[in-house]
C-alpha cells in the first residue's frame, strides 16, 4: 500500500501510534475502544501537524489529547464498559484456570484502585506504567518538572498500596 503522508509526520506516527493506544488503553481497558480513541487522536494530530513540529511537544500534546478523549469516551460509554484483562494474554498455556481467575481478580482490583486515584496521580501512574517510560520521559510528556512527577508517583503508589490492602 502506498501512503503519501508527509515524511515528518510519518516518522512521528510510527512511534506515537503505540503511545496513543496505550494511554487510551490505560483509561478504557478495552482494546477496540482504545484503538478508536487513539485513531481519533492521531487524526486530530495530523490535522494540527503544522503547529506541532517539535518532537517532544508533539508527543506531549498527543498524550494530553488522547487522555482527555479517552476520559470523555469512558464517561459517555460507561454503561457498556467491559474491561479486558491484559494478563490473560500473557499467561502461558500451562496456566491453570485457577491462576487465570486469580490473575483476573488481581488485575480488576488494581484497575479499580487506579481509577479511584485523583486524575493528576492517575495519569502519572499510567504513563510511568508504560514500560519504556522513566521519570524523565513522563516529565517531558506532561511538561512538568521531574521532581513533581517523582512526588506524584510516590503519592500514587502509597494510595494504591492502601487501596489494595
Amino acid at each position: 500500500m502506498t501512503v503519501d503522508l508527509d515524511q515528518e509526520f510519518e516518522a512521528q506516527l510510527a512511534e506515537s501510534t503505540r503511545l496513543a493506544f496505550r494511554v487510551a488503553y490505560g483509561v478504557l481497558r478495552h482494546r477496540e475502544d482504545a484503538e478508536d480513541v487513539a485513531q481519533e487522536a492521531l487524526t486530530k494530530a495530523y490535522r494540527k501537524r503544522g503547529s506541532l513540529r517539535e518532537h517532544e511537544r508533539f508527543r506531549a500534546w498527543l498524550v494530553r489529547i488522547t487522555w482527555r478523549m479517552a476520559i470523555d469516551h469512558q464517561r459517555s460509554h460507561k454503561r457498556r464498559v467491559v474491561w479486558e484483562t491484559a494478563d490473560v494474554a500473557n499467561l502461558g498455556t500451562n496456566e491453570s484456570a485457577v491462576d487465570i481467575l486469580a490473575s483476573r481478580e488481581r488485575s480488576a482490583s488494581l484497575w479499580q484502585a487506579i481509577d479511584a486515584l485523583p486524575e493528576k496521580l492517575r495519569i502519572v501512574t499510567v504513563l510511568a506504567g508504560i514500560q519504556e517510560h522513566d521519570i524523565r520521559e513522563v516529565a517531558l510528556l506532561l511538561e512538568l518538572p521531574e521532581g513533581t512527577i517523582k512526588s506524584r508517583l510516590f503519592l500514587a503508589r502509597q494510595r494504591l498500596k492502601e487501596l489494595l490492602q
Binding site: T17, G129, R157, L160
Partner: peptide, 26 residues
C-alpha cells in the same frame, strides 16, 4: 506494584491498527 501496573499496560494494539490509522490519515 510497579510490575503489576506495567503488566496491566503491556497490551499491544491489533496488527491492523497501524494500517487502519494510515488509511484514515490518507
Amino acid at each position: 506494584l510497579k510490575r503489576e501496573i506495567e503488566q496491566a499496560l503491556s497490551v499491544e494494539p491489533s496488527p491492523q491498527f497501524m494500517a487502519k490509522v494510515r488509511r484514515e490519515l490518507v
